[in-house]
Design a protein around this nucleic acid. Sequence first.
RNA 1: GAUCUCGUAGCUCAGUUGGAUAGAGCAUCUGCCUUCUAAGCAGACGGUCAGGGGUUCGAAUCCCUUCGGGAUCACCA
Length: 594
Amino acid sequence: MNTIINQIKDAVVAAGKNLFQVEFPESAIQFQSTRKEFEGDITLVVFPLTKPAQAKPEDLGLKLGEYIQNEVTHVVGFNVVKGFLNLVFSDAYWLQNLDLMVSASQWGMAPQNSKPRMMVEYSSPNTNKPLHLGHLRNNFLGYAVAEILKANGHQVTKVQIINDRGIHICKSMYAWQVSGKNETPESSGLKGDKLVGKYYVEFDIQYKKEIKSLVEQGMPEEEAKQQAPSMLAAQEMLRAWENGDEAVVQLWKTMNEWVYAGFDTTYKRMGVDFDRLYFESQTYLKGRDEVIKGLEKGVFFKKEDGSVWIDLTDEGLDEKAVLRRDGTAMYVTQDIGTAILRFEDYPDTVSQIYTVGNEQEYHFKVLFKILKKLGWTQSDACYHLSYGMVELPEGKMKSREGTVVDADDLMETMAAESKLVADEQGKLSDLNDAEKTAVYNVIGMAALKYFLLRVDPKKNMMFNPQESIDFNGNTGPFIQYGYVRTQALLRKAENWNRVVDAGVTLNEYERNLIQLLYSYPQVIQQAGEKFDPSVIASFAYELTKTFNSFYQQCSILKEENASLKSLRLHLTELSGMCIASSMRLLGVSMPSRM
RNA sequence: GAUCUCGUAGCUCAGUUGGAUAGAGCAUCUGCCUUCUAAGCAGACGGUCAGGGGUUCGAAUCCCUUCGGGAUCACCA
């Protein structure tokens, strides 16, 4: 499309000179896609040209249209509505592009590894409780953005930082020690992350009880929170861990292993993976070292009490502490360490993308500034992929109030729902149970992923467990269904003419499809630039709708004209390919039947 | 208090380099399966784009302001 647009642009400039004796400024030549209700393939907005040309919009449009039609081979018609000049391209132009698309090995994909390495961090859970709905949005987003960047030609490293250290895991450890009776995932039959999460909840219950009783004895609440025996015990455990106490470290290892095993199961079902894991327990000391180095270079300064700070007031931010009085690392300190370690591990990395909730926007502003001051110029290209919360009808998810939606449960529910729908339709009756289950899972996950990814990442979104996830309309299964139709057609098509006949006449359905398919590379590019999978989701939906409409209106296998049949099968094949390809970028798989 | 962000149909969401009559899905209602998979297609209904002001040929989009929701501003993570 670019080449023809450039030709039109040149024609407009020439028309300016020849018809009006003026030089149209580049910025005044504006195009937009033609609205559906009008005839045309591209629209020139003539308003900005009326001033320099000293002409009325309608007249100008007519004159330009005529000029362009004479100059540009593939512009075969035009019409003017108000100040809009709609240009019609020839069928030959679109058929030529169709030929281009079908002969491309992977239409839409930039050449692999043609662009520098980017690192995408996502998931990054704490190891004291199971994954929930918020993590699902995080993981799906991060994974999708990584795939989209790959499709744009980048080398991509998918990473996560596992927050395996700190008071939170000590809470679970302590509660397990007190009341666990050596319970293990094997003995309890619980997934490891669920087991550890159970003790985290127990800790919280006990802790609350203690606070209540202390407050009843007359202690102020703030003090009670600090003095509650179980909290003191958990803190003592953290100190013991930091000092390398063997028993504590052993317990910590054991319980973390349980959690990892549980997470692995969940990740597998989610369909996400990582190229490299980073553990906070291995990077937090690195962060401290980097801060000390920076202190020597004068990037940071030390206050009288021994704490270390950075002054970001010249950047419009505040002063920020990076080391505590006692010299220990803080949250931001570890992130400094992790970021630098990653740049050292993968020196060709030009950017790190952090998939983290929007409540941490300030944190990442600070982190990027600090990295820059430490001399890591890549920080300019680093990006906080900030996403909004998933809200429930009753408000936010709060683990303490039991209003979390568990990731495993939700995925299971989705599969069960899709089983209900599928069984009712009975189209899978000749499959065996394992094959059926695979289809249920693929459909359930599509519904879930698409639901979470079709929304602009930065916005908060609403999740209503009762009615949110549907299988009709603008949904993952709808798109899968369109794909399944393409595959059914292709299975039955047998041998057909693989050559695009450049002489056929296109109807509006065929034309719409070609136009949309032709825009796919730009869609991928836009999604990559914005780090926004919802761009891809919209495209996949639009494409499926357009295909369905085409499917309904045009007979394909029964078409008697061989050239037309070939054209339609090409469109079917290409549509199927692009639907699958775009959904693949979202991490959504396609069933071959449903 | 300061900063950021969001507010579009009953509900969930698209639509910002300023462009035509603001678009989908769900819900409600009407048609279409002896014909390539009806998880579909075609259509109807539904809007003071939170309110007000400004910028201009033109504003959901940019600026100002008011209201409302959310977030952030720790030697927490």
